[in-house]
Amino acid sequence: MRTYDLAIVGTGGIAAVHAADVARLGGRARIGAVVDVDPDRLRAFTARLAELGLPEPQGYPDLDSLLAERRPDLVDLCTPPGLHAPQAIACLTRGLTVLCEKPPALSLAEFDRIAAAEAAGGGRFATVFQHRFGSGAANLRRLVGDPRLGDPLTAVCHTLWYRPDAYFAVPWRGRWDVEGGGPTMGHGIHQMDLLLSILGPWREVVAVAARRARPTDTEDLSGALVTFASGAVASVVNSLLSPRETSHLRFDLDHASVELTHLYGYGDGDWTVTAAPGHEQEVAEAWAEGPTGRPSGHGAQLSAVLDALDAGRTPPVGTAEARDTMELVAAIYASAFTRRPVGCGEIGPGSPFYERMEGPGAPWPAVRTGAAA
């Protein structure tokens, strides 16, 4: 079994989650290098790796220093969103494989530059959308269109979370220019990606967005109706204003309703399947045939990434899939701020929403000094 050399860039909270998952991989990967501009954070993170039983990595003050000395098998970007595109491009132009936390870029234009660097440099790029990888999601993807459950008709995708004002004291949070958006971009994107992975291509969006309560330049609430190529319609709500936090998805098919209720990750027990009258046995049998036992999470996706590297394939979720999700996010903002429906493929070069998620600007004043209008 090959042991892959992994470099983690950024040592915040999500990097600690990634490191813990590496420790559970049974030697499939080792963290050979860690990058952070803050030497105190770098030392603290290295100490945490030791507590996990992982060998001490080489520390670097910036990505350029790392790339000047090493060629990791996998570069794991755990930095704030505004750094993702330039760091990914620096790695991809050297032909490296990149796993990047969400959102992978601040705009569709930035994302397309990542894809261009991937194509030109021979590297490979994947975005962390870990909810695709639980067994429940794999089971439902297998059954959409199966005559026992039928075709999808309608769906619900609600990310109802709570973040107090103090959460936005971190300088890059709540700003268009360095975070790219609010809960639509940075929080609900996980559930929306799972929605798309199950229902397939979307066709049109009608949306609203608002800043209701938080000291941000971005929205703290959005809602949308998304029509899919299949004709299915989904309601999508993204909120940071909801004291009873939940992540809830529901898929109503011809003969069954399939529901997922969790917060930041799910297991098999978080799924509920309700058959339409007269279809109980066939629905139960169909669901029981599927995979079980794999919770969603970064570890599940990291394992899938290493499986892909073993097979010489592009790791999941690649640029084409991630771009679909980014385009849906951009369309929600475009529809909300222009007050009209936005179709898939409509936002391209020449559209203000291609260069920036807020387009020409949100319909409310900025609250942070120096932030983008």
Rank of each mutant, 00 (worst) to 15 (best):
W287R: 00
Y354G: 02
E346T: 06
T272M: 00
Y333R: 14
A284Q: 06
A334M: 07
A311H: 13
H298D: 01
T261M: 11
T338G: 03
E289W: 11
G297A: 13
R340C: 01
Y333K: 14
E346M: 06
G348T: 15
L260G: 04
R323Y: 12
L260K: 04
W287C: 00
A276N: 03
R323F: 11
E355Y: 09
G297S: 14
R323K: 11
E355F: 01
G345V: 10
T319C: 07
A304I: 10
E321M: 11
G318I: 08
P360Q: 09
G299K: 13
L260V: 10
R294P: 02
Q281I: 01
Q281L: 02
S335D: 06
H298C: 00
A336V: 03
P352I: 13
V342R: 07
T292W: 14
R339Y: 05
Y266F: 05
A311I: 14
G312H: 11
D310Q: 12
L328E: 05
A334G: 07
W287I: 03
R339F: 02
G297H: 14
C344R: 14
P315F: 09
G318F: 03
A286D: 10
A304M: 06
A275P: 11
T314D: 09
A331V: 11
G265K: 02
R356E: 14
F337N: 05
G299F: 15
P360F: 03
P316E: 11
G318L: 08
L328V: 05
A275F: 10
I347R: 00
A334S: 10
A308H: 12
G269T: 04
Y354F: 10
S303E: 02
G312Q: 08
A331T: 10
P352G: 08
P277D: 02
E289A: 11
G359S: 08
D270F: 07
P360Y: 00
S335N: 03
A286K: 09
A300L: 07
P316I: 13
V273W: 08
A330H: 15
D268W: 14
S335M: 04
H298N: 04
A322L: 09
T319I: 13
G348S: 07
G299Y: 15
A288Q: 15
L328G: 02
A311R: 15
A276D: 05
E327K: 05
W271K: 05
R294T: 15
A308T: 14
P352T: 08
S303M: 00
A322G: 15
A330N: 12
C344D: 01
V342E: 10
A311C: 08
R356M: 13
E280G: 01
E289Q: 11
A275T: 12
R323I: 07
G348V: 15
D268R: 12
P295S: 06
A336Y: 04
Q301M: 12
Y266V: 09
P277R: 02
A311G: 09
H279A: 00
G359C: 09
H298F: 07
S351R: 07
M357H: 13
D324Q: 14
L309Y: 08
G348L: 10
Y264C: 02
R294I: 15
W287P: 00
S303K: 04
V317Q: 13
S335Q: 03
I347Y: 00
Y333C: 12
E321W: 13
F353S: 09
E346P: 03
